[in-house]
Every structure is written in C-alpha cells, then in structure tokens.
C-alpha cells in the first residue's frame, strides 16, 4: 500500500528558486512605476486589417430593441427545415451597438445572445476609403474572449458577408466550459482581416495584442434551465480515447459536450468552421418537462480535437462536440439531456 502521506512530505520540500522572489518583486515595482494604458494598434494583413481597443462598455441582459438575431437565425433554421420559421430569442438578447473608429474603418459590436455558457456575438466592420474592395476578396474576423477574474473563455471565427451599404457582418458563437459568461466580465479581442484572392499565402496568423480589447460585462441571464452539468459521460467512438465529457451545457443553439480542456471553440450555426465534421460519437436526446423528447434531429455535429504526443509532458487531449438541432432547443422546458442512455438532469 502506498501512503499518500509520502506524497505530502515530498511536496513540502518543493520550493521556488530563491531568485524568483527578487525577480517578481522587481518586476512588480517596475510595473507600478510605469502603469500601462490601453493603446490602439494597427495590424496589417493582406490589404487591410483592423484591431480594436474599447474599454468599459457595460452591457446588460434585456429586451433587444433592434434585434439582429431574428434575421440570422430565422434564415438559418428556415434553410435547415425547408420552411419559413420564426423564433424569438429576445429574452436572452441584448443590443450593444458600440463602435470604434480605426485607421481602416469602423468596427461595431452589434449585439449578443447570452446564455450562461454560450455567447453568440454579432459585429460588423465598415471599411473606409483607404481600403480597396474587391468582390473576390474574402473577409474573416476572429474574436477571442477571456474572463477577467474568471475562467470564462471562448474564441469565435466568422466569415464576413457584405451588405448593400458596404458593411461586412460577422456572427460567431463563443462557448465556455470554464466559468459561465453570464454573470462575468470578459475581455473581447477582435481582429478583422481582408484576404486578397490573388494570393496563395492564405490566412496570416495574427498575434493577439494584450492591450486591444472591448470589455463586456454580462450581468446575468434571464434564461432558466441552462445550468451546466458536470456529470461525466463516457462517449463511445471518440477520436481520442478514452473520452469522458466532463462538461455538458445547453443553449438554445446547441448541446455542447466537452472535457477539461474544451474551453475555446469556434462554431457558427450552419458552418462548423475550423472543426472536423465527424460521425456522431453518441446519441443525444433532449427531454422536456412534459415528457416529450427531441431526438435525433441532429443536423450538424462538429468537434475540435487537440491531440498531442502522449510522451510529451505538456500533453493535452481535449475535445468538444456540438450537436445542433433542426430547431432551437426550448431551454425553459428542458429538464434533462440523455447521452448514450445516461440521463443528465439540468438544474
């Protein structure tokens, strides 16, 4: 029998190097004497690019006045079902409409749909006269979100589409399997890139700058029945084995299964960008309070997998699955999600 007391005793001998103390205190003093302020930076990719710096924008959940998501999701679900449908997400939506003028144009964060563990963010970029537009160029935008004091994290990537006014619109879903977005503060970093069609260099990786961000404070969510479950469920037929989904969260848009590392994702309704479409690793059924069930109308399943060398000390295996249904989940009436026969109650 191995006694964990041994582990305790060995642990007590582990100490940082003595020099660390001096290094940290010196850096701290140096930082105090040169307090940093947010600055705008221009990042050039292709013909035009923009990075945004906004601070202090406070948004709160409430009824949206100019509801952008109606057109987005009506279009998406209508196409999936083949009939014209209308869903109302206004109880979890919020208008933001915060803009910042940049050297290459104006970036506006339009609105957000907020559930505890998912934020669907919509934003646009209106390039100014310094940008040469071409019908064959493509536009892409990335948003990275990090909790300030929390572990809420998400990354979204979206292709842009131009409207008649020459404004490029983006929509992306941010999923956190760390702390909930709702009720927390996040820093959102945006990068908009124009990718010229006449180059084969592809998308340039942009390094996120520490001082470029918009602060979003989500006061909470009025949507009931969306709490994350931490019941582990073993998934079969996973690309990475063994696979246990430690986190299960539900939003009107998807059921999300993820493991410990599955905090950063990119997913857009109807377009699992940056992910691999795979066969469903499990059966998922949504169970409503009246006993009715929604299954298996999954129309889109995607996963993002990290697999690293198992011999590497920094080895990470992480994956997350998004199961998107043909119609939004009625989360207020949802009482459980059944995954591979295991019923996970939603509290």
């Amino acid at each position: 029998m191995k006694n964990m007391q041994l582990y305790r005793e060995i642990s007590a001998r582990v100490r940082p190097r003595a020099a660390c103390r001096e290094e940290i205190l010196t850096v701290a003093e140096d930082m105090q004497s040169k307090k940093r302020r947010p600055v705008m930076r221009r990042i050039c990719i292709g013909l035009a690019a923009a990075a945004v710096a906004l601070t202090g924008t406070v948004v709160a959940v409430g009824a949206a006045n100019d509801w952008n998501y109606q057109r987005i999701f009506t279009k998406y679900y209508s196409e999936k079902t083949g009939t014209q449908v209308q869903y109302d997400f206004s109880n979890i939506g919020m208008d933001i409409n915060e803009s910042v003028v940049l050297p290459t144009g104006t970036l506006t964060v339009e609105s957000a749909l907020v559930t505890p563990y998912a934020v669907c963010l919509s934003w646009n970029f209106a390039p100014n006269e310094t940008v040469t537009l071409s019908d064959t160029d493509s536009w892409i935008s990335i948003v990275n979100c990090f909790g300030t004091d929390h572990n809420a994290q998400g990354v979204g990537q979206a292709d842009g589409t131009f409207d008649e006014q020459g404004v490029c619109h983006f929509t992306a879903n941010l999923i956190s399997v760390g702390d909930p977005f709702a009720g927390s503060s996040i820093r959102a970093y945006f990068i908009v890139s124009q990718i010229p069609s006449d180059t084969e260099t592809g998308i340039t990786q942009v390094k996120m700058e520490e001082d470029n961000y918009i602060m979003l404070e989500f006061s909470g969510s009025t949507e009931p029945g969306l709490e994350k479950s931490e019941t582990s469920v073993h998934l079969t037929e996973c690309a990475v084995k063994p696979c246990d989904a430690d986190y299960i969260s539900v939003s009107p848009l998807a059921v999300i299964l993820a493991d410990e590392y599955g905090s950063a994702v990119q997913f857009t309704p109807g377009d699992a960008m940056g992910t691999d479409l795979m066969e469903t690793p499990c059966t998922v059924t949504a169970v409503y309070a009246d006993g009715t069930e929604l299954s298996p109308e999954t129309v889109n399943y995607s996963t993002l997998i990290y697999t690293y060398n198992s011999e590497d000390p920094a080895d990470i295996k992480g994956q997350r699955f998004y199961l998107v249904f043909k119609k939004p989940l009625e989360t207020e009436n949802l009482v459980a999600v059944r995954i591979n026969g295991t019923e996970v109650p939603l509290t």
Binding site: E9, N309, I316
Partner: peptide
C-alpha cells in the same frame, strides 16, 4: 498549456533530488 500546445518539456522537479528512497520516487 493551450498556448504552447505541444512542446517537449523539461521534466518536473528532478525526483532524484527530492526523494530519499524508491518508495518516494515511485509515488
């Protein structure tokens, strides 16, 4: 860990320098 993704890391504290016998090293 997410940022470094894959990297051949330097092993943790050298067990030989911390542990006084095989049992400690093992655990």
């Amino acid at each position: 860990l997410k940022a470094i993704k894959r990297r051949r890391g330097v092993p943790l504290e050298d067990a030989a320098g911390l542990c006084v016998n095989d049992e400690e090293t093992g655990i």
